[in-house]
Amino acid sequence: MNPHSNAPGGSGPEDLRAEALLKGDMEALRQCSLERLPRFENFAGQLSEASRLKSQEGYFMRSIRSILAHPGRAAALTAAGVALILTIVPVTYQRTVGYEARLRVAGPVVPGSLGQIASQWKGLLGAETVEARTETRSGATTTTFVARVPALPRAMRNAAMAFARGLAARGLTAGAELDPRVEHVLGSVYAMAADRIQEFRQEFRIDVRGKTEAQIEQEIRSRLQAVGATNPEVKVSKTGDQTRITIHTDKAPTNRRALEHVTVGDVPESKVARVEIHSDHKMTDAETKAEVERQLKAKGVDAEVQVINGRINIDVKHKK
């Protein structure tokens, strides 16, 4: 076959010279490749020896040969192996499961004020229960109020410390200790990474009982600012059984948290729904609405959602 019979290139002097050169080189290669070919007898003998060695080749060497012959397949297998290790092989790590906030009040506490402090401490932290312990050592009495909460944002920590200082102003010697509650977990590396990410999440609950709409708004606003939301606009209005909460925050938080989590709740007895909005994703109003509705529906909350220019309106419908 003539290698140049269907040449798409031009036919100028340069092309003709190149083609002539190529033809000559092809013939040269034909002839050179026939020079000093090994004799078949010698070749067969060498191959016989090679085949004997090959048959003795172990699994490891065969695997190495296979990897060298198929590097793409080897890379895929390696990736699959790493993924398998990350998801199956267990490692021991610590996981923060919540926080314990202890308020120590030294000296005897008037029985009436004991309940008052416990209630304030509970409301401040949004805890479901507060445990009060009284210890007497060497004649000194210490009352400890222990509240366990799932999350403890910075604003809540500051508020707790301020509360303890406020008790001192009322003549009580008090101090607050806020410690994470950790547990040792045996899990995969993937689970460990997921838990680490989870620790960046912020959530808060608000007890609205006995609070005015303005107080609820202020509390939500301060909590949002504590988790990094900028210029939050909050509006709460109660009409009969319905509570209308309107929240608008800038999408980009000022701090470095990857996710912004806002917990919106009503009275503690009612269902609490957490709506998560990924502030690092630019979503259209329709996408945001669909996402909020999806999350609320998944939590079993019947609500009407409106999103206009990034402003989210949620009408929570209560069933008696």
């Binding site: 003539n2 290139g9 340069e14 190149a18 002539a20 050169l21 080189d25 013939e27 034909r30």
Partner: peptide
Amino acid sequence: RERLRRHYQRLGLAPRGEPFPLL
């Protein structure tokens, strides 16, 4: 073939005499 041809053109070589006869 096209890549070969371009490579040879880039070489800038040309046979002075007759090319080798092809089979």
